[in-house]
Each structure stands twice: as structure tokens, then as C-alpha cells.
């Protein structure tokens, strides 16, 4: 696995993160900490930026330390590295954007137990060069982010008739009966299920080509 993945070039890594091995469609990983904030696009955007930053930087650090970390305590070391970046993100957010920090509540802290961060560190960064690890973490984070942003856009538009707080022409007019359920928790489950349905139905066709 190590030699095969080492030889992957950066372009392949980016494509894997964005589509072929997308953390959400392929692995259903790490939806816990972010799905909850997809009722508004702006919350999702901040949360995804935080997650991408933490994933990329932790992968880089884990990779830099990979030859110095004893194998039997590597999980603990990885958790501490991730925790370190989560604390940085949390403190920055509290200082610069206290309202957003309150909106996101405990979910910024929960990046720590997000399976994607841990998964990328364990599966890739632990056995690859720093640059490749940074790139892989960055694109896993981005691949995750665009899916969640799409989910958030659908939920906010159908549920509130807005996008980033701006009214959307048809959906904010009285003709559109707002689907309040979309901004409530069940909406998150339904939209994610639909996203999975669509992407998984596209997949088999690609494989046949």
C-alpha cells in the first residue's frame, strides 16, 4: 500500500478526494459533526473551512512526525495533534467572530472526533511524505465541504427561501410554501440520503465505461 500510494501524483490525489474516494459518498464518514450545522449556508461554510484547515494541517504534522512516532501510541499522538489544531481554530473563531462561535456551539470542538480527520491521518499521512499528505488532507476536506455546502444550499433555500441570508427570487415569494421541515433535523437526513442516492446511481455507469 505504501509504495503504491507514494507513487500517486498530486493530480490523482486531488481527484480521489473530490470524487472517486469522496469521504461522504464513498465512505459515509464524518457526517456527525457537520450535518447538524447544514441548516444555514454561512454556518456550513465556516464549519467546513475549519474542518478543511484542521484536516490539512493535522495530516501535514502527522506526516512530518511519522518517523519519530512509536507505532503503538500513534493514535494518541494523532489525537493530540488534531486537538491542538482544533483548539487554535476554536480560539480564533471565539476572538474574531463570537456570534458564529456561539451558533456553532460544540460542533467546532467535535471536529476532534470527526472520522475524516482521523481517517486521513491514519490511512494516508502516517505512511506518506509531508507534501502529499498536506495535499491529500486538503482535498479530502474540500471534497467533504462542497457536498455539505450543496446540502446546506438546498436546505436553506427550501426551508427559508434564502441563500446566505439573501432572499432567492421565487422561493422567498408568497407562492412558495416554505418547507420548514428542511431546516429542522429530519431535513438534514433526507437531503443527505438524496445526495447519496444520486451519487451512487451515477457510479455504476462510470464503472461500466
Amino acid at each position: 500500500m505504501t509504495s503504491a500510494e507514494n507513487s500517486k501524483n498530486l493530480r490523482t490525489l486531488a481527484l480521489d478526494g473530490l470524487w472517486r474516494d469522496n469521504p461522504i459518498f464513498r465512505q459515509i464518514l464524518g457526517i456527525c459533526s457537520t450535518l447538524a450545522v447544514t441548516n444555514l449556508v454561512i454556518n456550513t461554510f465556516v464549519m467546513c473551512a475549519a474542518l478543511t484547515l484542521v484536516t490539512a494541517m493535522s495530516c501535514l504534522t502527522v506526516s512530518l512526525l511519522r518517523n519519530r512516532t512509536p507505532r503503538n501510541i500513534r493514535m494518541m499522538v494523532q489525537t493530540l495533534i488534531i486537538g491542538f489544531y482544533v483548539v487554535i481554530v476554536d480560539v480564533i473563531l471565539k476572538a474574531w467572530w463570537p456570534d458564529m462561535s456561539r451558533n456553532l456551539g460544540p460542533y467546532v470542538g467535535l471536529i476532534l472526533t470527526n472520522c475524516i480527520v482521523m481517517g486521513r491521518c491514519e490511512a494516508f499521512a502516517g505512511s506518506n511524505k509531508p507534501l502529499a499528505a498536506l495535499w491529500d488532507g486538503l482535498f479530502s476536506g474540500l471534497g467533504y465541504s462542497y457536498v455539505l455546502l450543496a446540502i446546506a444550499a438546498v436546505r436553506e433555500m427550501l426551508g427559508m427561501g434564502t441563500f446566505l441570508g439573501w432572499p432567492v427570487p421565487y422561493f422567498s415569494s408568497p407562492y412558495w410554501d416554505k418547507w420548514i421541515i428542511m431546516v429542522m433535523p429530519p431535513g438534514g437526513f433526507f437531503v443527505l440520503a438524496c445526495v447519496l442516492w444520486i451519487t451512487r446511481s451515477i457510479k455504476p455507469k462510470e464503472a461500466k465505461k
Binding site: G187, F189, F190, A193, L196, W197, R200, S201, K203
Partner: peptide
């Protein structure tokens, strides 16, 4: 396309 996680999420919803 809904088998596995997809249908689980619908039920959860």
C-alpha cells in the same frame, strides 16, 4: 442507489 446507508438515513429522518 439507496441500499445501505441511503435507506438508513431516510429511516433516521
Amino acid at each position: 442507489g439507496l441500499r445501505g446507508p441511503g435507506i438508513t438515513l431516510i429511516i433516521a429522518g
